[in-house]
């Protein structure tokens, strides 16, 4: 039950894009069409879980005994970036199909702020390893949800009469804020 609660809070109540306004660059940049945004969403899910699985043990079994907790920003960034790079090498060699499908997204999300935020929060919320994994899946699926929602709206926007001074990014932020307000309805879901 506890795990379910963590998952739902991460997915809906504290949606990473719509409630906490993280990862906005890829949110605006990669939602030109629905297919692309789904690809990006799953790539982020993959990397977030991977990053959590790597950074949680690193923090608890290396940084804490050495009392180097203050180094976590530096260490996590380095580890996540190298990890993604390693995965890219591996996919290119052994699973070229998946590599071609993920394509440009993998290197793009090496430094995605949502992923870094998840790894930090696993530490600050004092989650266990299992809880951390569930939390990271929830957050990244929340990201996927927000991406697909905006991509669908953008499809409609292409044929809508948007006032000239709102065209482009401004109207996207207004749309995002409106979806965000709708997501506030979820805040009563979990006590």
């Amino acid at each position: 039950m506890d795990l379910m609660k963590i998952f739902l809070v991460a997915l809906l109540v504290n949606n990473v894009v719509l409630m906490r306004f993280l990862a906005l660059c890829s949110y605006v940049g990669m939602t030109n069409d629905v297919g692309q945004s789904v690809g990006m969403g799953f790539a982020v899910t993959f990397v977030t879980v991977l990053a959590t699985a790597a950074t949680w043990p690193l923090y608890h079994f290396v940084l804490v005994p050495l009392q180097l907790q203050f180094l976590q920003i530096l260490v996590f960034i380095l580890v996540i970036a190298s990890l993604v790079q390693l995965v890219e090498f591996y996919l290119k060699k052994n699973i070229p199909g998946l590599y071609a499908a993920m394509g440009i997204y993998l290197p793009l999300i090496t430094t995605n702020c949502a992923i870094l935020a998840v790894t930090f929060e696993n530490i600050t919320y004092k989650y266990s390893f299992i809880q951390s994994i569930v939390y990271s899946v929830g957050v990244s699926l929340g990201y996927l949800l927000a991406m697909v929602l905006l991509a669908g709206i953008r499809d409609r926007m292409k044929t809508s009469p948007v006032p000239k001074f709102l065209q482009g990014t401004p109207i996207l932020f207004i749309a995002t804020a409106l979806i965000g307000m709708a997501f506030m309805g979820f805040s009563g879901l979990i006590k």
């Binding site: 580890v79 190298s82 790079q85 090498f89 591996y90 060699k93 052994n94």
Partner: peptide, 16 residues
Amino acid sequence: LAFVLGLALGFFQKKF
């Protein structure tokens, strides 16, 4: 850390 990661990256690039 930098040394280990750099080495791993270099090794994997050769291997894969």
